[in-house]
Nucleic acid binder design. Structure first.
Lengths: 338, 338
DNA sequence: AACTCGATTTCAAACGTTTGAAATAATTGC
DNA sequence: GCAATTATTTCAAACGTTTGAAATCGAGTT
């Protein structure tokens, strides 16, 4: 219907005053007469005036937009983290613009450029599995746009802001939990070695063993990528010594764990049913499983997301200098099922 | 480092030419000399010139932004639909800005206003469970901004653009599949009655029975919201007549189905293990389940999303008149497991 | 009546682009 | 060699805001 959008100019003409008075009235400037403010605000409300963001952004040299690049939205870790990010951003007058890299470097570069063109005020990124070169992401800081890496990040690089799950602590806690339940032979099923926190998790496992005087055996450790076949051969490795099978298992991620459990179940070995498992994740589907894990390592993605956006906002507002690199760790929580 | 962003003006000064020449050279105007174009484009590349979107948007009166409002990102249906939306939007030079309503009307209204302020060029929306009044969404069309409702939509209202899964056809197909496998007593476990396609699904079930001369019995139909307790009492109702229990089950959504299966499993009744189940969804977790459904009704969310954005783009480009309301149906596909 | 002062409003430039019209430069025809 | 034509570049306004500086208005003081 009403196809000409309501602008300041339009309001000004209606009210027979200048554009600047209208602008100042709406922004509640102290120099503007109270009665004038009322008149302006009333008409604005009546005509559904909505300030044009493009104009404001141009003037303020801000976009009030936060870019988020992440591998994909099918992983509940990421979608849950978005929750924390979105909520806090909205509260502070920012909107988020999400872009999936699908774990493809080329796509990640495209996303980065797109966000740069949109002049985002800040970037939160969980890098793809294959990101080795950071030129496309370094562009942001070169232009003074702060970047916060979360979860997946360039491990070797200290010169960036990071928000990470405390995966060491999570894995330590899980292992400790199993030790406290009396387990002596606890297997560790690790994830892809390229992922930067693989090592951290393993350290959590090792340290828990050490701190509790449980001897470490390399026979009890195997690695898998996210491929099912791969997981099964890893499991086979862990269970070769049939005399001396593990009685518990800590796994890198729940989907891997589920594959493992399914495989163990498929072998008709009663002792395999006693095995107590824990994995990182805490998916809602656990309650439907055949032999569910005894506990989950909850990574608190909402909190990771929220910490990332909080840090980013401080950087945007220059409360923290962009070169004063921060590292924030978010603890995991062990959720015992049943 | 380089904190003053490169603008057209900056390039123009460096090259000792006017801003408009630079602009036209970059936009490949035919009136600009080839050699000039080369010089401009080279310098632009060298200095990493990125046109300021806010300025362009202001000038063009377009934001190149598509708003997406949906209940939440934890439901795989929605995240998968985003995939289709994002891909097509990006291809056409648009970005998407996602907002979750968390099935809360107040939040949905806020999201709508936020998107309006951002001057999105179009809106794709899956309404919250509680949306009865559409004033906040009608604003868009009143301002000439096209809106496409997808999946969840105002069922009573014909005067809007809709893209829907063909839930009738999906349910029909599933029921037919069970009939073809020889089942005579097929139960139907429906979803919340407020959701607009609940009725469609039930019709699919009924029509499949009718077309195959299977008598309908109201004893074989029960409803549940997404609450677990509720689902269990619905199941109890379906299985009261122990002499004559259903041999198959069609369920509104997989999580509900999983609750049902879990409950049936928990009762030590061998005949309960024979029951063949189908639900809407097709989640990746199915392979881990105890007694998995025999098939899933795949709703093709990517395709639903893609159809929504395609329609929206046609509306934005005025290839279809905004008042010429469209309804697009996307067929479901039966996925037989195992 | 002239003058000051505070309150209020308006002016004008700026943000970075785009684009039709106008200006200028280069080329052609005679 | 000069007008006519074409190629190329520049001018200037516009998009909708914000904001410091300047202008205006009224009232109070002398």
């Amino acid at each position: 219907m009403n196809n000409t959008p309501v602008t300041l100019k339009f309001l000004a003409e209606k009210l027979k005053m200048s554009v600047s008075t209208v602008s100042k009235a709406l922004n509640n400037y102290p120099t503007i007469n109270e009665y004038t403010k009322q008149r302006v605000q009333e008409l604005a409300r009546e005509l559904h005036f909505l300030p044009n963001k493009s104009a404001i952004n141009l003037k303020e040299k801000k976009s009030h937009l936060i870019g988020v690049i992440l591998p994909n939205l099918l992983d509940h870790f990421f979608t849950r983290s978005i929750y924390g990010i979105e909520q806090f951003a909205t509260q502070n007058g920012y909107n988020i613009i999400i872009s999936q890299s699908h774990d493809d470097l080329e796509k990640e570069i495209q996303s980065a450029n797109m966000l740069l063109r949109n002049r985002v005020d800040g970037l939160i990124v969980a890098i793809s599995k294959h990101t080795q070169d950071f030129a496309h992401l370094n562009q942001f800081e070169n232009m003074g746009i702060p970047v916060v890496y979360y979860t997946r990040n360039p491990s070797f690089n200290l010169n960036c802001h990071k928000v990470l799950g405390n995966t060491f602590q999570g894995c330590y806690q899980a292992t400790k939990f199993l030790i406290d339940r009396g387990h002596k032979r606890i297997a560790y099923l690790g994830g892809p070695k390229m992922i930067n926190f693989t090592h951290e998790r393993f350290n959590g496992y090792i340290n828990a063993l050490k701190d509790n005087q449980i001897p470490f055996s390399s026979q009890l450790v195997a690695y898998t990528d996210f491929d099912k076949e791969n997981t099964i051969s890893a499991i086979k490795k862990l269970f070769t010594d049939t005399e001396n099978i593990p009685t518990a298992l800590v796994a890198f991620k729940e989907p891997i764990l589920f594959d493992a459990i399914k495989y163990l179940k498929s072998i008709n070995q009663p002792s395999f049913n006693q095995i107590e498992c824990i994995g990182f994740g805490n998916t809602s589907f656990i309650s439907y499983l055949n032999s569910p894990p005894i506990a989950s390592i909850e990574e608190n993605p909402e909190s990771v997301g929220q910490n990332a956006i909080k840090l980013l906002m401080q950087l945007i507002n220059k409360e923290i200098d962009i070169r004063n690199y921060q590292k924030v760790m978010v603890d995991c929580k062990l959720i015992v099922h049943g």
